[in-house]
Write a protein that binds this DNA or RNA. Structure first.
Length: 757
DNA sequence: CTAGGGTTAG
């Protein structure tokens, strides 16, 4: 805005005065005065004017001669003279002098410009807004029309002092044909800066009209788009759908948002899950042939990929070609990354091959970079193709390009791939190889190896490796400690878990919330609620807050220890800080209460849950069904199950069937259990090992061998793994029954069916 | 583009 203010005279001369000057020239049939010539007149006139007292100007023939001879007469000249007065008050005297002495035919515009100079001086003198408004009223009362620049000057000035209603007043009192695009832009800018969006949009609306006399221009677009982008945190006065409409209306006038703005908008839409709006805005712009860049399309591609919408990804990619939007490395990187994330590494490789082929036929002019390679390597590792990933490293080295050599990320991805598959040795080998190749391992390398070792039961090696690497100067971070704490919690070594937690701060490593959450959840699951509560206080002291999952862990832990009061205390705390419990919270309580036979309390919690607008989930029903079963009310459990089956929103899953089948078998109702198994088949709910185990137990009691054989066949058919429980039951039973042959076939049959799976 | 926690029913 400052820029426009300081550039104003030049702007004024160029855009608004030239036609006027030309007009005067033709009328007087004389050439335009040269700049030097006019500046001489200005200097001379000012000299005389400033030396003569204001009230003697009228009687000075020299002044009249200098100012009103026909060759020098021009509004521009009067403007230049007026603005050189040392104060607005003397400039105003000069204006009054001009008003009484100017020949009538030149009057209006000269006076308008002279008054503009008065406004300029007044503002420079930091005149109070009220006095400036008086000056404006005086101008108005004398029927002197505002010049365009006076109008913008005043609108901007009142806007700056947050008196936007004065800005609006000046605009509204302006002559209709003076309310041009420029003035409107200034007003809209002022109004949007004061957050008076509605007034701004009223002005904008007329400009956006198809037949508008003063349509929007590039600057209008900049002002409006920029203001709307700043609004992110505030409740927007424009909905996202309206924003799309607005962009569309601007586009009709050939005004388009720039690439950076558009990319931000699309990213914002996508983050909010409004992919359709993002799609629409991009396609509106394509329709109007707006200049578009790959970055904006990439943002949308990324979101579509996250939603797994490959149909629209393909469509957008095709449209980019049709609209001459050259795909960038990021475009390919995005597509490859999305495919990799969905474990479709083969397709990602196909895209990569096409990219390289396109480069050779000059169809595509982008080279794969190290990120593309790393993405592919990671994607291949995630589907267990570590060796193939290793092969890509060779391709990278062969490229001989700057920026394509394997870096730490490349090695980290590979190390992770091998470690996760249990090949820790290969991970370590790569660790040494990278150092040999001059690639420095970083904290991710350390964490990847430590995690790999821990996950494969080698905690001691992990700790040794940690000590060795950190001794050599690599600094561990919160992730390192989370990995170790998780590992020790998993083997129920809470003493060590807590020791590492304490070590972290001693080592000067600052903990993040995940470290706390990890330890708390570990302690809760083990029922060590005193320790868990202590860590919660430390978490709060460190300035963090438990999240909903953490609170749920605590409630679950207290329930496990039958400390119902404490569980309710946690629930109360959640509500006190304004955190809404979710269905997991309620399910935890319902499960505990009903399992301990307190069905009335369970019902109260269920009612509260529904009152909060939460719907009972399959877990809620499972908890109740389980509770009725363990409390000896299988009939009651079946009643809930029947209700569940007839309602459409929740359908029973494997766990529900397993509970019921197990209970029915234990209650001598094997036939009913078998009928549930048939129902699972019809409803396409997959039985798992637990289902079969429950059935085998029940069938054995009744010695229903034929049925068991049938189930064994089905188990093989569905490639459902028997576990040690299945084997124990069947081995005992079938040996007793003299059916070892059948057992053998079962084991073999499984081996055969497992091969293709 | 790489590393960590993730709660409820069997």
């Amino acid at each position: 805005m400052e820029m426009i203010l300081t550039k104003q005279p030049k702007f004024l001369l160029k855009r608004h005065h030239l036609p006027l000057l030309r007009h005067f020239c033709t009328e007087h049939n004389s050439p335009l005065p040269q700049v030097s010539e006019s500046s001489i007149i200005i200097t001379q006139a000012l000299d005389v004017l400033l030396q003569t007292p204001d009230n003697e100007w009228t009687s000075s023939p020299q002044i009249k001669n200098l100012l009103f001879s026909s060759t020098s007469l021009s509004p521009q000249l009067f403007f230049q003279i007026t603005r050189r007065f040392p104060s607005s008050s003397r400039a105003l005297s000069f204006f009054n002098f001009l008003q009484s002495n100017l020949p009538t035919e030149a009057n209006t515009s000269s006076l308008s410009y002279a008054y503009q100079a008065v406004f300029e001086l007044a503002i420079r003198e930091r005149m109070s807004p009220e006095s400036l408004f008086d000056l404006y009223k005086a101008c108005k009362d004398q029927n002197i029309p505002l010049s365009i620049n006076s109008a913008t000057l005043l609108i901007r000035f009142f806007g700056k002092v947050s008196m936007y209603d004065y800005s609006l007043l000046v605009y509204n009192e302006l002559d209709n044909n003076l309310r041009n695009t420029h003035v409107r832009n200034v007003l809209i800018d002022v109004l949007l800066r004061c957050d008076h969006d509605r007034d701004a949009f009223n002005v904008l609306d007329e400009m956006l009209d198809r037949e508008s006399q003063f349509p929007v221009n590039e600057l209008t677009g900049d002002i409006v788009f920029y203001a709307l982008m700043r609004r992110e945190h505030v409740k927007n006065s424009v909905t996202d759908e309206e924003l799309v409409g607005l962009v569309s209306k601007f586009a009709e006038h050939g005004v388009f948002p720039n690439a950076v703005w558009l990319t931000q908008l699309i990213t914002r839409f996508c983050r909010k899950g409004k992919t359709d709006e993002a799609w629409d805005v991009l396609h509106v712009l394509m329709k109007f042939d707006a200049p578009l860049e790959a970055a904006s399309c990439n943002a949308l591609l990324n979101a579509l990929g996250r939603e797994g919408d490959f149909k629209r990804m393909n469509q957008l990619f095709t449209e980019m070609k049709e609209n001459d939007i050259e795909p960038s490395v990021v475009t390919f990187g995005t597509i490859i990354n999305r495919l990799c994330k969905l474990y479709r590494a083969d397709e990602a490789l196909e895209v990569f091959e096409k990219m390289i082929a396109g480069k050779e036929t000059a169809e595509i002019s982008v080279e794969p970079d190290v990120i593309i390679f790393n993405t592919l390597i990671d994607g291949l590792c995630k589907v267990g193709k570590q060796e193939e990933a290793l092969g890509l490293i060779e391709q990278m080295r062969l490229r001989l390009q700057k920026g394509c050599m394997p870096n730490a990320v490349t090695y980290n991805c590979l190390i992770n791939g091998f470690c996760k598959s249990g090949n820790i040795e290969k991970g370590l080998e790569l660790f040494h190889l990278m150092k040999q190749e001059g690639v420095t391992p970083n904290v991710v390398t350390l964490n990847t190896l430590v995690d790999g070792m821990c996950r494969h039961g080698r905690i001691n090696s992990a700790v040794e490796f940690f000590q060795e690497v950190t001794r050599k100067g690599l600094c561990a971070n919160a992730v390192t400690y989370t990995i170790l704490i998780t590992a020790f919690c998993n083997v129920n070594n809470f003493q060590e878990a807590i020791k590492w937690f304490d070590d972290m701060s001693r080592a000067g490593c600052s903990a993040d919330s995940v470290v706390y959450f990890t330890l708390i959840s570990g302690l809760c699951q083990a029922g060590r609620m005193n320790d868990a509560s202590l860590v919660v206080s430390k978490l709060k002291e460190a300035g963090f807050r438990p999240d909903i999952v953490c609170y749920n862990h605590l409630i679950s832990g207290f329930c496990k220890k039958k400390m119902l009061d404490k569980a309710y205390e946690v629930l109360q705390e959640m509500e006190d800080i304004g955190m809404t419990p979710n269905s997991v919270t309620y399910n935890t309580l319902i499960s505990f209460l009903s399992k301990s036979g307190n069905f009335s309390a369970a019902r109260r919690v269920l009612k509260k849950m529904v009152k909060e607008g939460l719907v009972p989930t399959v877990v809620t029903y499972g908890a109740l069904i389980h509770a009725f079963c363990v409390n000896g009310h299988v009939d009651e459990a079946m009643k809930i199950f029947k209700e569940l089956s007839s309602s459409s929103n929740v359908s029973p899953n494997t766990v529900i069937y397993n509970i019921l089948i197990d209970s029915l078998c234990k209650n001598n109702q094997v036939e009913l259990a078998l009928s549930l198994m048939e129902e699972m088949k019809v409803k396409e709910v997959r039985p798992n090992t637990n289902t079969y185990n429950a059935m085998f137990k029940g069938l054995r009691q009744k010695n229903m061998l034929d049925k068991a054989f049938k189930l064994m066949d089905r188990m093989i058919e569905h490639a459902c793994h028997p576990d040690y429980i299945s084997m124990e039951i069947l081995t005992e039973w079938l040996s007793e029954a003299g059916q070892t042959e059948k057992l053998k076939k079962f084991v073999q049959g499984y081996a055969v069916s497992a091969a293709p799976a």
